[in-house]
Every structure is written in C-alpha cells, then in structure tokens.
Amino acid sequence: MELFSDDFTDGNALAGPLREIFAVDMTTATGRCAGCGDEGPVAGMKVYAHAPGLVARCPSCQQVLMRLVRGPSSAWLDLRGTMSLRIPMPAE
C-alpha cells in the first residue's frame, strides 16, 4: 500500500472542541501513544476532521489516539489509543 492522499490538519483543531469538555487548554497537554510510545503535544497530532467525528492520529505511527464525537446532547471521547496525557496545571 502506498499513500494516495493525506488530508489532515494539526491538533490545534482540537482546541475548541476539547475546551467544551475540559477546564484547561488541552492542546498543550502531552500525549503518549499506546502504539509506538512516542510523546508529543496534542497540538502536534494529525487530525482528520472530514469525518463523522474528529480523529486524531499519532504523527509517528498513525495509530488512532483520540476519537471525539459530538452529538446534540452528549460528547463521546475515546482515548484508548493514548497511554497517558500530561496536562499542564497552574501551580498549587
């Protein structure tokens, strides 16, 4: 298989949608891929937005890190491809 086309945007596209759910800006959080173990900021994920939801993939191995679906009265956030998220917090 070879790549035919790759129509994605960067993880900054997740800023607004995730701000609907979380109290902090999640694009500066650091995610670790459950597939290859690579670490990087949410803003650096490959986001496929022309889809029934937002699909964020690992820029290293293409593993699906995040699926975000917004229905009229619920949002679904599937993070099974993300091993962990390190989220910057204000100092206590």
């Binding site: 298989m1 790549l3 790759d6 994605f8 022309h50 889809a51 029934p52 699906v64």
Partner: peptide
C-alpha cells in the same frame, strides 16, 4: 460526492 475519511487515503494495488 463529499469525501469523508478517518485517516490517510491509501492506494491498495
């Protein structure tokens, strides 16, 4: 015919 995809588009020979 809108194109929706959840990832890169592959060419499968």
């Amino acid at each position: 015919f809108p194109v929706l995809t959840a990832g890169p588009t592959l060419r499968v020979p």
